[in-house]
Design a protein around this nucleic acid. Structure first.
Length: 155
DNA sequence: GCCAACGTTGGC
DNA sequence: GCCAACGTTGGC
């Protein structure tokens, strides 16, 4: 059974439009340098899982669309590249520290599911987004996914 | 740009 | 292994 996740990005760095325009509408979700998020990327997130794409640090923070995982759990190449912002001198090929997945664009919502709307829906109050706002890769329960898609996502 | 929340680092 | 200092995130 496919699971649901929420990935955050700052649209001025990488937006859902960038994802849609990418070759094969696919991108490597790299540069995650938080252990909790890393563990999800490494161990939990599988091909076929659904990803809610969230824009932060912008006028209307919220969920802007959907993507799906097309490649799961492989070492983030950026950690091995000294030129890269995300280089980690403590990571080795034998013992990689950071992981990533590839995701493919599926849909951009006609209307953003604003953080404000999520806060106002009592059935979404347990979302990790509201409890642990800073986590950039987070789980979404099947119930939460259903509510988001049924009650909030514009077709 | 401010500031609260929270993750990481490093001295002890 | 504790905890203060510091850095980063992200809503507002």
């Amino acid at each position: 059974m496919a699971r649901h996740w929420l990935f955050k990005s700052e649209p001025h760095v990488f937006s859902i439009d960038d994802l849609e325009k990418a070759p094969s509408k696919t991108t490597r979700w790299d540069g995650v340098r938080n252990y909790q998020a890393r563990n999800l990327l490494r161990d939990e997130i599988k091909v076929g899982d659904q990803v809610f794409v969230y824009h932060s640090q912008c006028k209307v923070p919220g969920i802007v669309g959907l993507a799906k995982v097309v490649k799961a759990s492989y070492p983030d190449p950026a950690q091995f590249d000294p030129e890269n912002t995300y280089y980690d001198p403590k990571a080795t090929a034998d013992n990689p520290r950071w992981f990533c997945v590839d995701i493919q664009h599926e849909k951009t919502f006609a209307k953003v599911i604003a953080l404000q709307d999520i806060k106002q829906d009592p059935s979404l109050h347990d979302m990790v987004l509201l409890r642990q706002g800073r986590l950039s890769v987070q789980p979404v329960t099947p119930e939460q996914a259903k509510i988001l898609l049924r009650d909030h996502a514009a077709k």
